[in-house]
C-alpha cells in the first residue's frame, strides 16, 4: 500500500490551564524578585553562555513562569553562574540565586 507522508505534530501551544506551576511557586518563594522581571532581555544580551549556545536565560525563566518546565533542567545546565546578567538587570532580579533555586527545584521535583 502506498504510504502517504502524514504525521501528527505535537501541539506547540502552551495550555496554561494544564501546565505545572508547583515548581514555579517553590522557586518564587526562594527568589521573589523574579516577579519584578520586565522582560527586557538585558540578561540574555549580556550572557556569555548565550553568545556561544542557544541558551536564553530570559526565555528560560519566562517559560518557567508559564509552567513550561520540560526543558528546564537541560537548559539551566548551560549557565556557568558568572552573574553578569544580574549585574545588568534593571529590575533587580537576583538571577544567580534564581538559577541556583532552579537547580535545587529540578532536583527536588525530579523534572
Amino acid at each position: 500500500m502506498k504510504q502517504f507522508g502524514y504525521s501528527i505534530n505535537p501541539d506547540r501551544q502552551i495550555d496554561y490551564d494544564l501546565t505545572d506551576k508547583s515548581l514555579l511557586s517553590f522557586i518564587v518563594s526562594f527568589e521573589p524578585s523574579l516577579l519584578s522581571c520586565i522582560s527586557c532581555g538585558t540578561c540574555t544580551a549580556t550572557c556569555t553562555a548565550g553568545h556561544f549556545t542557544d541558551f536564553n536565560i530570559r526565555r528560560v525563566h519566562t517559560l518557567l513562569r508559564r509552567g513550561e518546565i520540560t526543558t528546564l533542567k537541560k537548559e539551566i545546565q548551560k549557565c556557568m553562574l558568572c552573574g553578569k546578567c544580574q549585574l545588568a538587570c534593571p529590575a533587580g532580579v537576583n538571577l544567580r540565586n534564581l538559577i541556583r533555586s532552579i537547580h535545587v527545584a529540578v532536583e527536588k521535583f525530579n523534572v
Partner: peptide, 12 residues
C-alpha cells in the same frame, strides 16, 4: 501569542 516565549498560549 505569548510573544516572549514565541509560543501560542491559551488559558481559561
Amino acid at each position: 501569542e505569548d510573544t516572549l516565549t514565541g509560543r501560542p498560549l491559551k488559558m481559561t
